[in-house]
Design a protein around this nucleic acid. Sequence first.
DNA 1: GGCGATATACTCAAAACTGAGTATTCAAAC
DNA 2: GTTTGAATACTCAGTTTTGAGTATATCGCC
Lengths: 191, 191
Amino acid sequence: MSMDRQLLLLGLLRAQEMHGYQLNEFIDQQMNFCVDLKRSTAYYLLDKLCRDGYVEEEVEREGNRPERKVYHITPTGEALFQDLLRQNLSVYAPPFYPEDMGIIFEHQLPPAESLALLHTRREAILRHRERVHALYQHLPPSHTAVIDHHILHLEAELTWVDRLIADRTARLPTSDGVSVSPHIPCAAASE
Amino acid sequence: MSMDRQLLLLGLLRAQEMHGYQLNEFIDQQMNFCVDLKRSTAYYLLDKLCRDGYVEEEVEREGNRPERKVYHITPTGEALFQDLLRQNLSVYAPPFYPEDMGIIFEHQLPPAESLALLHTRREAILRHRERVHALYQHLPPSHTAVIDHHILHLEAELTWVDRLIADRTARLPTSDGVSVSPHIPCAAASE
DNA sequence: GGCGATATACTCAAAACTGAGTATTCAAAC
DNA sequence: GTTTGAATACTCAGTTTTGAGTATATCGCC
């Protein structure tokens, strides 16, 4: 039942009651580096949290602006938040990266082509790192742990690409058409 | 349209035609450390790949065993695989970890309780690392890049927990009830 | 005072995903 | 010879997620 997303919404509403748009803006603008939640999903989840009694909505009318619903957390919601948070922190969920399926099949490409792709990837990682580092500056110290987490994984990703680039370069056919040191696996670098 | 999972299935069927159960067993047993694909999802995707012409199914009958469908990739499927692989490798998708929402709110817990949870998490990470290291031994060298990737991220996760544990320990109230060095953010350790 | 751009606040049908269930065969234990 | 349990091979109804669309108000500019 998508407990993690519920945890996110409860955590945000707990800090401050909000209406849908506000919530979505916050997630899109402040958390886009580590969270991807579609607006329609947010509305769906808000509705579900309501039906399940974890948050309540209150219709707000100001002058003749379009009415909007303000969501605030209930005691049951607060309890669920506490539960989910403890659960989530104490359990380590091994990382499943569906977006990284490509690395499973990378070794099937000719080294020269793989290298070109890996270099592109490397550039993308560096660009992303710039963005995240920039965020670091104007953040309350209480939130740095999240960015820290993100940066550590970014560095891991970078190390991996660099290692693989080095290995694939070594396997590149030389001018006389023979591969150099074809049997040093990438893994040799670790441990 | 869930391109990553399609990439996975195409990649596996490309190497060897299989029937559904075989495919599922392989994913569950050989790839469970980095892939989480439900069996029903696999069947759904196989069906969809068929409808879209990327794989073909062939009903196989042997004696009086229940009939089963053997799936094999088509030329269009092979082309799609090549496309998706190149796309996937060259693009860096910033990691969105819905399973790690907890770390966003960790700082709202009292340090003592957070510490207990973080230690549990640390144990879970170590256990997982053992499992992955064990896999390393009996794997063809062509596949080590995947495990390498996984281990690097595991180490990143471990570094993060250790850093946070150190920080939260420092913030623990001392016997005279006063927090120690309450203003050193976890972030100070990096850079 | 009218026109387009932008902010606000969703709705909805379609697609994707999941958990639980169904059905058959086979081998071993009782 | 029959119950039992595991392996095989899915199906399906329900839930979750998404992309595209709807609709009103406000603001600046001509």
